[in-house]
């Protein structure tokens, strides 16, 4: 049976898209292959590592764990939507400052999850950050500097709000 195409509308990083997609296309495939937003990474392809984390209507989800058709009518924000060279998001700045990455492969997912975590909590401590990052795997850093960066990013995000 041929995969039947579906028409969907979604907003990605503030830009509206009307697209025709095969029903079996994952959201991460749409982002990377169709929209060429390759900052969102595919790490494990089994919905475990969190490298593909994006925001769907403001909440962190693994974009390999849902089909693009399920995002019809939703807002999606990827790593490209939060900041870039010359204007890094405070969480990106904190990751750079704390040396919270080595190979960098998990970093976009870590940062998207960290921003969601900070936005939804009030006053995270180290333990809360460790628990909050349970869905994101890093094979290089041993996590220590990532935790430091999220705590520093939290302070910077709160200072920005004031």
């Amino acid at each position: 049976m041929a995969a039947l195409n579906k028409h969907i509308h979604l907003r990605v990083n503030g830009v509206s898209h009307a697209l025709e997609v095969p029903a079996n296309m994952l959201l991460v495939e749409l982002l990377r292959q169709r929209l060429r937003l390759t900052g969102t990474h595919v790490g494990c392809d089994t919905c475990q590592c969190g490298a593909c984390t994006v925001h769907l209507d403001g909440r962190a989800v693994k974009s390999c764990a849902l089909f693009a058709v399920q995002a019809d009518g939703c807002r999606v924000c990827t790593i490209e939507g939060i900041g870039g060279p010359g204007g890094l998001h405070p969480m990106q700045e904190a990751f750079r400052d704390c040396h919270a990455l080595q190979c960098g492969f998990c970093t976009p997912g870590m940062i998207m999850r960290a921003i969601d975590l900070v936005e939804r909590s009030d006053g995270l401590d180290e333990q809360a950050v460790r628990e909050g990052l349970e869905g994101n795997l890093c094979r290089c850093t041993g996590y220590h500097n990532i935790i430091k960066a999220v705590l520093q990013g939290q302070e910077a995000m709160e200072a920005d709000d004031d």
Binding site: T53, L66, R113
Partner: peptide, 9 residues
Amino acid sequence: IGDAQVRNL
């Protein structure tokens, strides 16, 4: 349950 991303869906 699971992790935050799983709980969101």
